[in-house]
């Protein structure tokens, strides 16, 4: 039996009379790369924000890293990393300053901070830019930096919200190398994306349509189930029925 790190049971979020997330139930196992797919407006980000403790669910249950989302959101935050859709590191701080700031907030010791910072800058190949303001970095590098900051404190789970949106194919590839590396270290990866080639890299994917989970399985099983040649086709078959969109 594999350890389960995320578990939801009929988790819902309503804004007024609009139900953004409608009774989703699923489980994510430790060490998995879990793809969270869906059209724009399907409710992916809302679901993810509930799991990260940024948004209180309207109903249903959810446990993340063994903690319950309603009452133990601060304990959850100690055990997860999060990378939002919008770049959210400080643009007016340098690469090094951003890394050490977040490392400090997560309570790493000074020695850990200097070791990690050095290793990270080397790994990302940012030696030259380390002392420059983040505002001046190209988007791809910013995204890699955000990801590295999100896993700096060795969280059990890392949540990535469209981490590769607007990024070129080469950088996307490098980004996925970072994801695999984190996954090998035992970090569970929960990732949303619109790129179906990226969906193929996941161990399992769920596809959300209009706030509900329409399908959940490994990419190869889904392709068989929907008699499709690629994840693109699977997604198309499911998302075509969507009533919401932006």
């Amino acid at each position: 039996m594999k350890e389960i790190v995320i578990k939801t049971d009929r988790l819902s979020k309503r804004f007024g009379d609009f139900t953004a997330v409608n009774e989703i139930s699923f489980e994510v196992q430790k060490g998995e790369i879990f793809g969270f797919l869906g059209a724009n407006g399907a409710g992916k980000t809302t679901a993810m924000r509930m799991l990260c403790g940024l948004s209180v669910p309207s109903s249903g249950k959810a446990e993340v890293a063994g903690f319950e989302v309603y009452r133990q959101s601060e304990e959850i935050k100690r055990n997860i990393g999060y990378m939002s859709q919008k770049f959210s590191l400080y643009e007016d701080l340098t690469v090094l300053e951003n890394i050490s700031f977040f490392a400090g907030i997560y309570g790493l010791s000074n020695r850990e901070i200097s070791e990690k910072t050095k290793a990270l800058v080397e790994q990302l190949g940012l030696e030259k830019e380390a002392k420059k303001l983040v505002a001046g970095l190209p988007l791809g590098w910013k995204q890699k930096l955000s990801f590295s900051v999100a896993v700096l404190h060795q969280p059990k789970i890392v949540f990535l919200d469209e981490p590769t949106g607007g990024v070129d194919p080469v950088t996307r590839r490098q980004f996925w190398d970072l994801i695999y590396e984190a996954s090998e270290k035992g970090i569970t990866v929960f990732v949303t994306t619109h790129y179906m080639d990226e969906a193929e890299y996941c161990d399992r994917v769920s596809i959300m349509v209009d706030g509900k989970i329409a399908a959940l399985d490994s990419p190869s099983n889904l392709k068989t189930q929907f008699k499709a040649g690629s994840m693109d086709e699977v997604f198309y078959q499911l998302a075509r029925g969507a009533k919401r969109g932006d």
């Binding site: 990260c52 403790g53 940024l54 601060e74 935050k77 999060y82 939002s84 959210s88 977040f102 907030i105």
Partner: peptide, 10 residues
């Protein structure tokens, strides 16, 4: 949006 990154820390 930087507050999101703060709010997700403990």
């Amino acid at each position: 949006g930087t507050i999101e990154q703060i709010n997700v820390t403990p």
